[in-house]
Design a protein around this nucleic acid. Structure first.
Lengths: 150, 150
DNA sequence: CAAAAACGTTGGCGTTGCCAACGTTGGTGG
DNA sequence: CCACCAACGTTGGCAACGCCAACGTTTTTG
């Protein structure tokens, strides 16, 4: 036993924003570890997932949907094109835009990463029952919808 | 109406780790905005809160309790001493250690920041009933306790 | 047709979370 | 007692995210 074990201050331990921060940090560690096997990071997955779900899109559109700044989309798309997962082509209908499309390899990688993400969710939510997982999801969703739900 | 409004990909929108990340990011924005009025940041508050709650402690202890890396504690304590909120003194009982103590100004600032944090919680949890706030807190606490409970 | 807006791009900044290395000090086993 | 290992504070560095300002180009608005 270790009666002098360091404890988080109660003032933090019971603060929702602290709990959210810690839980998200932990989830981030799991996600990062999962993505490391793919040699990609969070930004890359968000973009691949958006493209897999809704088809080709402009960089600005992707940025809005994935909550990634325009400038960061540029870099992430550069990475993805470099890996042959995505193609960047000028939009003939609007020459300000680039149209980003998944390649076949990109589609496959998007699926593989989605599997990884699903496994991580199971890890993360292991201590919660199915009903509790739904509850957590609902509470967080309502929180986000309330705050400038986008 | 805006039928073409950009939507987060469903693959993200329904993923708990994504929801956690977004909620924590939002909470972080609110917290940062609140702390900006004090001219301090998250690390500083964690340390002040731990000191206010449990009294003087070594830097290593603070780091463990606040989940801050030793090297980051050094910098944050430097900032706090520079502002006269904290005092760093060698521990006569163990000359490896520094004992960090709150000054009077530090105690007062810790209280003020705690008030700020409390206000932010109300903002953050506005859409949830009291029972729902407890539920969210319990779910997150269980999640954290399960994963290397600390 | 002029002004405003959107787009992609470059370059930069700050916070948070890490890790490696070093010298110093304390504890432990031989 | 002494050699070894652990803990501490410190420096310096790195990666991921999130964000912002500015610029030139193109499109849309008034």
């Amino acid at each position: 036993m270790d009666a002098t074990a360091p404890q988080s201050p109660a003032g933090l331990r019971t603060t929702p924003s602290w709990l959210l921060n810690q839980a998200a940090t932990h989830a981030g560690r799991l996600i990062s570890a999962g993505f490391a096997a793919h040699g990609l990071r969070g930004y890359h997955y968000r973009l691949l997932a958006a493209l897999a779900e809704s088809g080709p899109a402009s960089q600005a559109d992707l940025g809005r949907r994935c909550a990634i700044d325009r400038s960061d989309v540029v870099a992430a798309v550069n990475d993805l094109t470099g890996r042959g997962l995505v193609v960047r082509a000028p939009d003939p209908a609007d020459r300000r835009r680039n149209v980003i499309s998944l390649t076949e390899a990109g589609t496959a990688e998007a699926h593989r990463m989605a599997d990884t993400v699903a496994r991580v969710q199971d890890d993360l939510l292991a201590p919660l029952s199915s009903a509790e997982r739904d509850q957590l999801t609902r509470l967080l969703t309502r929180l986000l919808e309330h705050h400038g739900g986008h």
